[in-house]
Write a protein that binds this DNA or RNA. Structure first.
Lengths: 212, 212
DNA sequence: ACCTGAACACCGTTCAAGT
DNA sequence: ACCTGAACACCGTTCAAGT
C-alpha cells in the first residue's frame, strides 16, 4: 500500500516493507500457490531479480510475511491474572489474526517448522501459561501443543473455505451423517480443542494454585 | 520395488501401485521438494506424461502416497477395553508410521487438509474414542484435535531432523536456555501433548464410566 | 541503495499419436 | 491398457552491469 519513492531517480524504488506488504496483499488476493516471485515482482513493476536484493530467497520472504501476520494479532487486554482465560484469549487472538489473511496458517506453519521465524506466536502462548506457575518444561510443551493445534485447525478451516468457494464437493472422513449435520461452525470446534488442552494442563502440578 | 511387466510388449509397463511405491521411495530418499513428476517418471524409465494415465494430477498421487503411509501403521493389539490406553496406542502407531518416511507428516497433513484422503487416520483415532462413551460430536472433535496435534508435532520433528542433518543452526523460539538444555527427545514431548488432550477429554461427560 | 537484462536449470500438465 | 514425443506456460535463482 505505502510505496517508497525517492526523489530524482529513474525508477520507483521499494523498501523491504513495501515488498512484504505487496506479498501479503498477493497472498490474500490470490492464495499461496499463486504467490510467486515473478508475480510479486510484476505487481511492484520490477524485475524478479530485484526481489533478491531484499531477500536471499523465497522462504525468507515468506518468513517475513508470517511475522507480519502474527504481529497483527490483537494485544492482550490489560490487567489479567488467571492463566486459563489469558491462554484462551491469546489462542483466539492468534486464530483471528490468521483468519484475516488467506492461506496464512500454512505460511506461518511452514515458517515455524523450518525454524525461520514467528517465534512470537509461541512466545505469546508460553507467556500466558507462565502466569500459572507450571514447570518451565510443562509451559513450553503446553504452548507447543497449543500452537500445533491452532495452526492445524485454522489451516484446515482455511482449506475448507477455499474448497467451498470453488464449489468442490469433497466428502471428508466418516460417512457418518452426524458430521454432515453438525455444521461445526469452526469457532466452536476450535474452542473445544483449546479447552481440552487447557483442561489437561490444569491437572499438571502448579507450584501455586490461583485460588484467591 | 515390485515392477509389473507384461509379456511381449515393447516397454516395461507399470501399475498404479508401482507408481505409488516409486513415489514413496523417492519421498523417503530425497524428500518432498525433490519428489517431482519428472524425477518420478525418470526412476520408472518413463516419460512424465505417462504418469497422467495413472493419476489426474500430482495432488492425487500424493493422496495415494499419504494413504499408503497411514495404512502401514501397525494395527491395534487385540483385546482392548479402555478408551484412554487405546487412544494413546493409536496415536503412537500413527506417529511411528509417519516417522518411517521422510516428510510424510507434511504429505499426510496437506492431503487431509485438501480433503483428498487419509480419512483412515481420523477414523482410527475416532474409533478409539468411541470406546469411551462420549457424545458423537465430542469424539469427532477430540479425534480432530488429536490428529492436528500429531501431524503438527511430527511435521515439526521431521523438519528438525532434516535441518539437523544439514547442519543448519537455526535458533528456535525462546532464547531461554531451558529448551536448549532439555534436549526434548521428541517422543516425550509427543506423549505429553497426547496426554493433555486425553486428560481434557476425560473431563467431558461420558454416558458410561469404565470403572469395572 | 536498489534495480535491469539475460540467462540457467528446472517445473506440472495437455494432447495427439503409437502399440 | 499403458506409453511416447512434443509442446505450452510457467517456476526460483544467479550474476554482471547499470544508476
Amino acid at each position: 500500500m505505502s510505496e517508497t519513492e525517492t526523489t530524482g531517480s529513474k525508477y520507483t524504488r521499494h523498501s523491504r516493507d513495501d515488498v512484504v506488504g505487496a506479498a501479503l496483499a498477493l497472498l490474500d488476493g490470490l492464495g499461496l500457490p499463486d504467490l510467486t516471485m515473478r508475480r510479486l515482482a510484476a505487481t511492484l513493476d520490477v524485475q524478479p531479480s530485484a526481489l533478491y536484493w531484499h531477500f536471499p530467497n523465497k522462504q525468507a520472504l515468506l518468513a517475513a510475511v508470517a511475522d507480519q501476520i502474527v504481529a497483527r494479532a490483537r494485544p492482550l487486554p490489560a490487567g489479567v491474572s488467571d492463566w486459563m482465560p489469558t491462554a484462551r484469549t491469546e489462542a483466539d487472538a492468534l486464530r483471528d489474526a490468521l483468519l484475516a489473511f488467506r492461506d496464512s496458517a500454512e505460511v506461518v506453519s511452514s515458517t515455524i517448522a523450518l525454524g525461520l521465524g514467528s517465534g512470537e506466536a509461541f512466545a505469546r502462548l508460553a507467556g500466558a501459561l507462565a502466569i500459572g506457575d507450571f514447570e518451565p518444561e510443562t509451559a513450553r510443551r503446553g504452548a507447543s501443543a497449543l500452537l500445533h493445534f491452532i495452526l492445524g485447525h485454522v489451516s484446515h478451516e482455511q482449506q475448507r473455505m477455499q474448497a467451498d468457494s470453488l464449489g468442490v464437493v469433497t466428502r471428508t472422513h466418516s460417512s457418518n451423517p452426524t458430521d454432515a449435520a453438525a455444521g461445526a461452525s469452526g469457532r466452536e470446534e476450535f474452542d473445544f480443542g483449546v479447552m481440552l488442552l487447557l483442561a489437561g494442563l490444569e491437572r499438571q502440578p502448579h507450584s501455586a494454585r490461583s485460588l484467591s
